[in-house]
Design a protein around this nucleic acid. Structure first.
Lengths: 233, 233
DNA sequence: TTACAATTATGCTTTAAAACATGCAAAATT
DNA sequence: AATTTTGCATGTTTTAAAGCATAATTGTAA
């Protein structure tokens, strides 16, 4: 995709929150520098230790931010949905990435050079506040995650992960089925447990009629119970 | 303390990084609104669920940022030394505090209303960048902490905590003794383990001549070994 | 100084979760 | 269609760390 008018249309429709903060010169700056990329399922967008160059904007699909740990164990840190921005933290911290981003499913992602973003922030206080706000919310989330992942038991952690999936991606039209199709391994990586234990605990939840499981389709039957377990059970 | 000239002296000497970013009108705004508080050892500065009102600036002493978890278990998230700022994240995220701050030892702390800070950021791009940078570094730190606290074994976590103490507070004049006097319980709360295991593992490190322990005085004998254990051992 | 509480130290027991093993089913590849 | 691979499920074993109990020591207040 490279035709200007198409790009501007896509961008103005999708950049939503940020777009409304910009004047026409800033909008031109974006359309001139914005590039659209397609990533296949499981394809890596950027990797830990890379140097940050772009602001990424997820336009379509699902993206996970994760960190590879000990013995190939992966921890999923955050999940993104359209329209959300990622990949800017490391640039702002003047350091290489400490985590990696990968497409969870086939995804369309826009990129904008961070030096363009930087100069725009210099001249647009609303944009500065946008990032201050995002970073602050994420930091609160990570601080909370430190405690829940280290202190809650397996059932609590899995319940919390399922709630996160509800909050992030919502339900199918039936209002019950999670709108994300995720491998057991990824559920495990989200909840800090082994794949075996994710499988086991999902089965237990199913037996207790909290959820139903049909392959990768997970239906939330008793969300209240799930929230209760998440608060420790 | 309330005499203007004294205050201005204290502030201009101590606010260091931020102070140099301000013009004289902004400096006046600060001296007019800055208040100095003294906290006793273990006194709470603010608590989880409180609403954020002030930017805090640690002038003297040591402060811990922590989160109370399950069964009274406490997780220390970050440590502050003079001159560092804290307590602003929740305000920027428009939410109550998700963690608490307490003085580790008798401490002097300055406060500045966040609405003053906000209006200063509105008019000072360098100040905006200061907070973007701080938040970004902290977020990277918390994301990393999620993985190390969940995946490293006890020895690795304790080694990492000791390195954190070195990096944060440094050594006494002998270049060996940690410049912080900390209960075993706090060391445990920093490394996500029980007090028993902190004691046990410190003893093990002492027996292996990696450190020496004399009450709460901890001397780092073999920092290289410590860093190696931290990287998994 | 004595007395009391809090902290540090160690040993023993229990337990939650990881590691491992195996079988089965469903995709994917040939 | 046949075969290989991948993912899901479940049972068994092992282990790291928590929990508990009990001293010993240190710090602190009466």
């Amino acid at each position: 995709m490279s035709i200007k008018s198409t790009l501007e249309k896509v961008i103005s429709e999708d950049l939503a929150e940020i777009w409304s903060l910009l004047n026409s010169e800033e909008k031109r700056q974006i359309t001139d520098n914005f590039e659209i990329h397609n990533f296949k399922k499981n394809q890596i967008i950027y990797a830990e230790k890379d140097n940050p160059v772009y602001l990424w904007c997820l336009l379509k699909g699902k993206v996970k931010l994760y960190k590879d740990g000990i013995g190939g164990r992966q921890q999923i840190l955050r999940l993104y949905r359209p329209i959300q921005y990622f990949g800017y933290r490391a640039y702002f911290a003047s350091e290489p990435y400490v985590s990696s981003a990968a497409a969870f499913e086939a995804s369309t992602v826009g990129s904008l050079p961070m030096d363009v973003v930087k100069s725009m922030i210099d001249n647009n206080r609303d944009l500065a506040w946008f990032f201050i706000h995002e970073l602050s919310k994420n930091l609160g989330g990570s601080d909370t995650k430190i405690v829940t992942l280290t202190q809650k038991h397996i059932r609590g952690r899995l319940a919390e992960a399922l709630i996160l999936l509800i909050d992030n991606y919502g339900f199918e039209d039936d209002g019950k089925t999670l709108k994300i199709y995720m491998a057991r391994e990824d559920i495990a990586n989200l909840s800090n447990m082994t794949t075996s234990n994710a499988i086991r605990t999902l089965s237990a939840f199913a037996q207790e009629r909290i959820i139903t499981v049909d392959g990768r389709r997970i239906k939330i039957v008793d969300e209240a119970k799930l929230r209760q377990i998440s608060k420790f059970g």
